[in-house]
């Protein structure tokens, strides 16, 4: 059994956080595995652009360097699976990659061997069209084989076009219709608090998504019910489908809005791993208020051909674009796609 204790100074005084992690046999908290080179994951079982078998669980290595590698791996997974699916959302999956990595590989207490573990932290991908990045994280954590990633959006797949709790281990609710996720996160946070569970709830929203009225209804109730076990992100990538958010329907001033609704607001660079994990740690110390982390991001982040181009919102990488992505990510394309798909 491992104990984590932290002592923090907050505006209200000292706050002690005590977290307990159990060993694997008892239903442990997930700890990420180690690996060396991106795209060529070295572990005992599988080697290739994609690990063919389940990733081995090893004591977590949550160094920033390692988290960055994971983010790169997840981006690679997203590009490969979208290329194979021949449809899906590239831009918003890539912009969320670092946040999702920090959640699954650093912050959240969860157990891929026991996805329904009652004390787990919950994650709601409210911008459900970014499902590929969550699927990549789940696969890499060991919820299911990375091979499943290549069934994305195909008839009968466990990986539906938008997150589906009935089909995919590790998915908490059904999203895809924008604007509904934060309300569901609120409901979870209320229930978990009623049950006196240590679990925290995380949600990720799009900047276009916050144009939905329901988001602001949820914003109001989260603050009203003082949901300090709730922490949400806005993936502030500046683009929605029809163009720049400022052109389609301006949402600024965004941080002032959330503050006015009673939230604790933290502004970060959503691609700076250090800032992301610091914000996540800080959010845990905030009392009597939900926390909103507004993360400045770049749509399509990670590969220059997709960066800042709203045209790639719902367009998958072509074969040629995928090859270019391999080059840019410094990954050998050897074995793609034959070895990976076999």
């Amino acid at each position: 059994m491992r104990f984590f204790a932290s002592l923090r100074m907050t505006s209200e005084g000292f706050r002690v956080t005590l977290r307990v992690r159990f060993l694997a046999s008892l239903g442990m908290t997930f700890s990420c595995n180690c690996f060396s080179k991106i795209g060529v994951i070295n572990h005992k079982k599988g080697v290739g652009i994609l690990a063919k078998s389940d990733v081995e669980l090893k004591p977590s290595n949550t160094s920033i360097d390692n988290l960055k590698k994971w983010a790169k791996q997840l981006r690679l997974d997203v590009l490969m699976m979208l290329n194979k699916a021949k449809s899906g959302h590239t831009g918003g999956s890539l912009s969320a990659a670092d946040i999702v990595t920090a959640l699954y590989f650093y912050k959240m207490r969860h157990n891929p061997k026991d996805p329904k573990w009652a004390d787990r932290d919950r994650f709601v991908l409210s911008k459900g069209h970014a499902a590929p990045i969550q699927y990549a994280a789940l696969a890499r954590c060991g919820y299911f084989s990375p091979k499943e990633l290549f069934t994305l959006r195909k008839l009968g797949s466990i990986l539906q076009g938008h997150p589906d709790m009935k089909c995919t281990p590790g998915i908490e609710v059904c999203t895809g219709s924008l604007g509904q996720g934060l309300s569901m996160a609120n409901g979870m946070a209320l229930a978990l608090r009623l049950d006196k569970r240590p679990s925290r709830v995380y949600a990720l929203l799009g900047d276009g998504e916050v144009e939905e009225g329901q988001v602001w209804e949820a914003a109001m109730s989260a603050a009203h019910y003082k949901l300090d076990n709730l922490c949400a992100f806005v993936d502030f990538n500046g683009f929605q489908i029809d163009g720049a958010v400022t052109d389609v329907m301006n949402i600024e001033p965004l941080s002032e809005k959330w503050k006015a609704f009673g939230w604790h607001v933290i502004m970060i660079d959503g691609h700076n791993m250090g800032q992301i994990i610091r914000a996540l740690d800080d959010a845990e110390t905030i009392k009597s208020q939900p926390t909103m982390i507004i993360a400045r991001t770049v749509k399509g982040k990670g590969v220059s051909i997709f960066e800042g181009k709203y045209q790639y919102h719902g367009v998958p990488p072509s074969d040629e674009e995928l090859k270019k992505s391999f080059d840019e990510l410094g990954v050998s394309a050897d074995g793609w796609p034959e070895k990976v798909l076999q």
């Binding site: 449809s87 899906g88 459900g128 959006r153 938008h162 589906d164 059904c174 895809g176 219709s177």
Partner: peptide
């Protein structure tokens, strides 16, 4: 609608 699935 196809690939987007049930939500759409």
């Amino acid at each position: 609608v196809g690939e987007d699935g049930a939500s759409h």
